[in-house]
């Protein structure tokens, strides 16, 4: 079959510009992986794509995600480094191999190309280190025009850079003890969400919390036990109803956590934060023979695009409510807009 001749370089360059913007805007590693798969599907015309992680230091190799006919697919199969992949990594250049589909996941096979083929792209990051592999499935007839291949190479380089960026960003923004986002990230993301308000309807809410009597707790049980409480409460903040309630959980200070809610209506958030408070109250914290009870107080603040508040003023609203909740007896949440006790 002859090579395609209808490739329009102008349109491809505009599309490349657009794809670049979509990729570089993403900071969440999981969302980025999805965006990478979508982008590579757009530019490669392959309907079966797999993405593997590779660590040059310990040579670990694993499936990150795969895409088949518009859907993400999963597999329990343990994919291993093969001589073909090692050769591809050594060259740091794309190469064609025979194709095998394992649970609909494209993977290079040994031996000459037979019925189908795959194009393997090593993902090469900083210092020319290989950090992953993209495998694109094709029929035997597939041929690339030179322009088309060069644009795909640009896309793959961009994907590698973005993957590396989000990994470094995560390392720099995740608190080592609690796995919550750091205070620095909280400031950045809250400002970003405040800026986003002008492009969307609804409210932006965040909850500032503080563990009740935490100093006394540390004095009684020691700092190691205090760390256990911080970790377990952080885990609740991260995982409780994770699939239902989108939140950005951060460690604001020592025992102060902040949860940003970028998308949900306020009524749902009020319900959720009260449930979270009750769940914490009932949670049996580990580390002692007798299970420990820990509570927190919270202040909730919200703004719409009509509110003319800066970052500091917005944080102060939640902080003021937290202070009032503490004053009123702790283990409760105050909402700025109502000042009512949500216990």
């Amino acid at each position: 079959m002859p090579a395609k001749t209808d490739f329009d370089i102008d349109i491809a360059l505009y599309a490349l510009n657009y794809a670049t913007r979509l990729l570089v805007s993403e900071l969440d590693p999981e969302k980025l992986v999805r965006q990478i798969i979508e982008t590579v599907a757009d530019f490669s015309e392959s309907s079966e794509i797999s993405l593997f992680n590779y660590d040059e230091n310990d040579t670990s190799f694993s499936l990150q995600t795969a895409y088949s006919k518009g859907q993400l697919v999963e597999s329990e199969h343990e994919f291993k480094l093969t001589p073909e992949i090692k050769k591809c990594f050594a060259s740091k250049n794309p190469a064609w191999y025979d194709l095998q589909l394992i649970d609909n996941i494209p993977f290079p096979a040994a031996g000459p190309i037979k019925n189908q083929k795959c194009l393997c792209f090593p993902l090469v990051g900083q210092d020319n280190q290989v950090m992953g592999l993209l495998v694109l499935a094709y029929g035997l007839e597939k041929q690339f025009l030179e322009n088309e291949m060069q644009i795909l190479r640009v896309i793959v380089s961009l994907c590698s850079t973005c993957l590396e960026k989000t990994r470094l960003f995560k390392q720099a923004t995740i608190d080592g003890l609690t796995e919550l986002y750091t205070r620095r990230y909280f400031d950045v993301i809250l400002q970003k969400e405040m800026n986003r308000l002008k492009y969307r309807e609804g409210e932006l809410c965040f909850l500032m919390t503080d563990i009740d009597h935490f100093k006394d707790f540390n004095d009684t049980y020691g700092h190691q036990q205090g760390d256990t409480v911080l970790k377990e409460l952080a885990s609740l903040c991260i995982n409780y109803k994770k699939d239902e309630v989108e939140r950005i959980p951060c460690r604001y200070g020592g025992e102060e956590f902040a949860l940003i809610f970028p998308s949900l209506p306020k009524a749902k958030i009020l319900e959720f934060v009260e449930e979270l408070r009750q769940t914490c109250e009932k949670h049996a914290f580990s580390g002692q023979k007798k299970s420990l009870q820990v509570t927190f107080s919270g202040g909730l603040a919200s703004i719409t695009s009509k509110d003319n508040l800066n970052l500091g003023q917005f944080i102060k609203r939640a902080d003021d409510m937290l202070y009032k909740a503490k004053e009123a007896g702790r283990n409760r949440i105050y909402d700025y807009s109502t000042h009512s006790i949500k216990k």
Partner: peptide, 14 residues
């Protein structure tokens, strides 16, 4: 809208 979707708009515009 992925870049594939954008291409359709660009091709139609052309």
């Amino acid at each position: 809208i992925s870049s594939s979707g954008l291409r359709i708009m660009l091709a139609s515009l052309k």
